[in-house]
Simulated assay, not measured.
Amino acid sequence: MKKLFLFLMFFIMALAWQAWAGDKVLRMATTTSTDNTGLLDYLAPMFEKDTGIKLQWIAVGTGKALRLGQNCDVDILLVHAPAAEKKFVAAGYGINRREVMYNDFVIVGPQEDPAGIKGLFIKEALQKIAAKKATFVSRGDDSGTNKKELALWKMAGIDPKKLDKEPWYIQTGQGMLATLNVAAEKKGYTLTDRGTYIKFEYNHKGKPPLVILVEGDKALRNQYSVIEINPKRCPNVRNDLARAFSDWITSPKAQKAIAEFKLLGKQLFIPEK
């Protein structure tokens, strides 16, 4: 009888601990670049140590992350498609959008550079790729990078809707690292955020099969922001935990940690502050 009582007490305490632990878990949807680069693996333990909150995340394209937020499936977003984010907030799905960090997009391709785009501005580079029908590999997954790529084609005077029919334009439907690998295999060009490219370079021990050919254009800025899911629309989200993360990641301590996150001695993200 005593053993049964002790077992029941232990069981009840275990359930209570699980319930308490569940109260301290923040669910986040984020872009693949923050996951692929290792940034979140680096920041999450710091966040948990400072706040007692465990961070759990799913890494998907920004378009899908926004839909997860719209469906109340997560508590907070860390994404990089400013125009789509602003629409998301304006529609009442998110609140307290705060800019966290940035890097830039670059066009990478084979060393031989068959389209001759090295050193050009992004507009001229894309025009030359299209004119020469050089292989271009797109994520094609409605991610922040994919949204940016399509906007850049449009800026270059090329209708993004017509690219689907071009044999030289390949869509992977996958994340950035996978798309870089396909571009390397096909000896093609692709648009990538610099952070993920540095990770790609790191994976190839500093000798990647693709090199940066176009960079530095003002149109290539890549802004990352956090957005809390609106608790008025999604009453079950943990806005208290989301606000704690938003406050923490924009704090001087976390911003310093972001600045110090490097691979191959290269900074992957630049803090907003």
Rank of each mutant, 00 (worst) to 15 (best):
residue 193 D to W: 03
residue 243 R to G: 07
residue 109 G to L: 02
residue 155 M to T: 07
residue 183 A to I: 00
residue 157 G to C: 11
residue 55 L to A: 04
residue 203 N to T: 14
residue 144 G to K: 00
residue 74 V to P: 08
residue 120 L to F: 04
residue 41 D to L: 10
residue 214 V to T: 06
residue 155 M to S: 09
residue 230 N to W: 14
residue 208 P to E: 11
residue 145 T to H: 01
residue 90 A to N: 09
residue 81 A to S: 15
residue 64 K to G: 13
residue 244 A to Y: 01
residue 83 A to I: 08
residue 212 I to L: 06
residue 230 N to H: 14
residue 113 D to S: 03
residue 219 A to G: 06
residue 167 P to R: 02
residue 156 A to H: 06
residue 18 Q to P: 09
residue 107 I to H: 00
residue 212 I to N: 05
residue 179 T to G: 05
residue 18 Q to E: 14
residue 113 D to C: 04
residue 253 K to W: 06
residue 262 K to L: 08
residue 228 E to V: 09
residue 111 Q to F: 07
residue 26 L to Y: 01
residue 40 L to T: 12
residue 227 I to N: 09
residue 220 L to D: 07
residue 188 G to P: 03
residue 98 R to C: 01
residue 155 M to N: 09
residue 149 E to I: 04
residue 94 G to N: 10
residue 157 G to I: 10
residue 192 T to D: 02
residue 264 L to T: 01
residue 79 V to A: 03
residue 98 R to L: 03
residue 93 Y to R: 12
residue 236 N to L: 15
residue 272 E to I: 03
residue 64 K to W: 11
residue 62 T to K: 10
residue 172 T to G: 03
residue 228 E to A: 09
residue 84 A to R: 13
residue 7 F to L: 12
residue 203 N to V: 13
residue 53 I to D: 10
residue 138 S to K: 05
residue 177 L to A: 06
